[in-house]
Design a protein around this nucleic acid. Structure first.
Lengths: 205, 205
DNA sequence: GGATATACCTACATCGCTGTATGTAAAGTA
DNA sequence: TACTTTACATACAGCGATGTAGGTATATCC
């Protein structure tokens, strides 16, 4: 068969990744064979094995190509020394919802990570990465809520640890419910309203 | 081999189900073979095929044996005509968290449904059942929050639709985070505090 | 107490999927 | 231009899992 140029090879690689993303999302990771992916990408399994060591490597390339919402959230909220940490976090959270609602690829990849793969031995590293992202998120949020409390910005009704858990739980629940149930509500609109309501409660004196 | 009595057969069936639960939870549904289950249960694959048509039927028997938290929530909250619907729901939600925190079997089954199975073609009915449970939950909660608003019990800050979404998202987020991350916080304690904080906000005038 | 259904176990046949080894034509390189 | 490397395709070998057919010994029923 004809050897293609470098650019064409990169295109092939992307076609494989795209096909894998679609099929993983539609049928689940374990239930998708490399043969199916190859067919959908218009190549043979040989091409896949050329670009990726095996299915796990392909899966890894897929989820390493996108940023998780948790990572997004942390990166933007980590700017320390803010005079209004709660306001900042509220803004960042709403932006995060809006961003996810607009980026279909990340929706699919995140949905795959959430629902379409059981974390077996080798896939477990994907879970580990999420754990890590969550851990740093928790650490940052803990600092942030503690700061807010110290500055008298947090309602005494909300111990920092509880507020932090409530916030992360709500964010996770919004992502999960929206992705799982065919995006059947307005994530950017209603979701942001939920977050705003919660933060109003955080600030109430 | 010796045929066992009816009671013994039922015991065998339960041993198979228990082994499947453990292995599905530990390794994922797709990555668990009937041979592994049989070995863990101390029988051969023949016994499994005697009691269950195939792996899907075994999986179905597993999740049909337990009630989902959503179903729990709805059933208890559906008692109409309550003078304090918000108080009732708050109580029910906290009870629900407490119940889940105490029942290890339901934790495992629910975790399997959430994380350990990709919803392929035949397993999809499990997802369908969850969808149904969620739909009735949403319907009931919508009525409940609408009632609360009509009776002036709901803060004007919280439109009923937003409040309902915020509540379900928080509950889902609590379940998910707790089950996913090795139960690394006190679901009954901190979780209930989160719910209570939210409901205080719901009621604020 | 004999017939029959039950509750398994054993053995086998099959099949899809994986991984690898080999082939090959074009692109790059000196 | 000769050689090498790249980017695949093709072919093959092997395994693990599934489903089923057939055997067997014991409960259960009449």
């Amino acid at each position: 068969m004809a050897r293609s140029t470098k650019a064409a090879a990169e295109k092939t690689r992307r076609r494989i990744l795209d096909a894998a993303e679609q099929l993983f999302y539609a049928n689940g990771v374990a239930q998708t064979s490399l043969e199916q992916i190859a067919e959908a990408a218009g190549v043979t399994r040989g091409a896949i094995y050329w670009h990726f060591a095996d299915k796990v490597a392909l899966f890894r390339a897929l989820y390493e190509g996108v940023r998780l919402p948790q990572e997004d959230l942390v990166e933007q909220a980590a700017t320390g020394g803010n005079p209004d940490p709660l306001g900042l976090l509220e803004q960042v959270a709403c932006d995060c919802l809006k961003t996810l609602a607009a980026d279909q690829q990340r929706q699919r990849v995140f949905a795959i990570l959430l629902f379409r793969c059981d974390y077996l031995g080798e896939m477990a590293e994907a879970l580990a990465r999420q754990n890590e992202a969550d851990a740093t998120m928790h650490a940052n949020l803990t600092r942030l809520f503690a700061m807010a409390e110290r500055d008298g910005l947090l309602s005494p009704r909300w111990p920092p640890a509880v507020a932090e858990r409530a916030f992360t739980a709500m964010m996770r629940g919004l992502w999960v419910d929206w992705l799982r149930y065919e995006r059947n509500f307005d994530l950017a609109g209603v979701g942001s309203d939920c977050v705003k309501g919660l933060f109003q409660s955080f600030r109430a004196r």
